[in-house]
């Protein structure tokens, strides 16, 4: 890949990691939830400088272009992240339901007569 592309991905990955850290600092994102994004940003950063692993992986999966490997890995990563997010939503819905039911049970109002 040419120098221009590598410089752009380097800058973008740095900005991305910076943004993630800012979100954590301003408490819009919890540390535990930020790890996956920091790691993703750092991987792009590392791969922009040192492309050997990417080339190796490309040969391993039999792809012709490094870009294909990148796209494939990116899509797999995003699919798993969104699936994981959905499990978090399910977990939260369950917790909200349990809490709401507890509140409901505490709300018992006796009949008027």
């Amino acid at each position: 890949m040419n120098l221009q592309v590598r410089v752009i991905s380097l800058v973008v990955s740095l900005l991305f990691v910076g943004y993630v850290l800012w979100l954590v600092r301003s408490r819009k994102l919890r540390e535990a939830d930020s790890i996956v994004w920091v790691l993703a940003g750092l991987s792009i950063f590392v791969l922009s400088i040192w492309m050997k692993p990417l080339e190796l992986l490309t040969r391993l999966i039999g792809a012709r272009l490094v870009v294909s490997t990148l796209f494939f890995a990116g899509i797999v990563f995003l699919v798993f992240v969104s699936l994981w997010m959905t499990t978090r939503v399910s977990e939260l819905s369950e917790q909200v339901k349990d809490l709401a039911q507890k509140v409901t049970l505490l709300s018992e109002e006796r009949p008027e007569r």
Partner: peptide, 11 residues
């Protein structure tokens, strides 16, 4: 004449 349990949000 019923006992009433009120949910705070839709269950």
């Amino acid at each position: 004449g019923a006992k009433v349990l009120r949910a705070p949000i839709r269950l």
